[in-house]
Design a protein around this nucleic acid. Sequence first.
DNA 1: ATAGTTGCAAAAGTTTTGCATTGTA
DNA 2: TACAATGCAAAACTTTTGCAACTAT
Lengths: 156, 156
Amino acid sequence: MTTSPESDAAARKRLRQAGLRPTRQRILLARRLFDGPHRHVTAAGLHAEVLGEEAGVSLATVYNTLHQFTKAGLLRELVVDSGPSFFDTNTSHHQHFFLEESGRLVDVPGDRVSVSGLPPAPPGTTVSRIDIVVRVTGKEAEEGTASPLRRPRTLE
Amino acid sequence: MTTSPESDAAARKRLRQAGLRPTRQRILLARRLFDGPHRHVTAAGLHAEVLGEEAGVSLATVYNTLHQFTKAGLLRELVVDSGPSFFDTNTSHHQHFFLEESGRLVDVPGDRVSVSGLPPAPPGTTVSRIDIVVRVTGKEAEEGTASPLRRPRTLE
DNA sequence: ATAGTTGCAAAAGTTTTGCATTGTA
DNA sequence: TACAATGCAAAACTTTTGCAACTAT
């Protein structure tokens, strides 16, 4: 699959609209991130993906770019365990399953999840976001090309 | 406040019951952790606390010990953002407020919090735990000796 | 004695920062 | 040309591992 001019233009537009200059590195990463279905990536995983590309991007730039995208509202950062953070291309409000064995993150489908019984936030503060992580164990059923973007956490 | 023999014995007993040998380092850390009210500590914060002690404990040992305590059920590990993990001396099922400005973690009081509308876990997996982090912003009202065990995350 | 455990130095892994370079107006 | 924005090497920070030293039989 070769690079399509289409998605390059789309990436440029997306970056402009987010107030970010469409630099080579940002376009490269934006195309990876936003071309297909929603993804959960780690900085290291995304960096590994683009190592094969013609012109490189350093890991530091991947980090900085992911944070810039996050600040611009294009991504959402998720921290699930002591390993690397995930960046989610789905920025709408939703929650996650975390598969402890594989270290994979899966969206909780639908948007019916709600929290009840929550006491007021500490005095002087207001709630900015509620993150729910449903940690699950057990090997998930095989399903096509599951790509473990992350080294599974060591067991025992 | 000098060290009390009482709490040394209590710490030894606690460790024994958890199936851990009561070594000097473990006793030192256990006393810090379990003597008073519940705490949320980071490895670095706890290490800093014991630097003044007569005999030292290395940061690596603090980490290993915290993980051993966690595996033994004496602590619960919490990861909230990309900084260091927290270890919570309250191992009962409860949730947290995370104060984004100060990087502090506060228990959600009561145990009335519940999640509804959750779809089934992915095929082949079972839920092991549901973690809820209520992220709040704004400076909390002063209240006695608030100890920021963690460097606040850089703003802007 | 000795088999298993422990504690820490060193290594590995993750993230941020400072500044030379680049790109835009 | 000037001036802000960018990208990355290097530094900082967090966590894990391998093995010498220790401990409880």
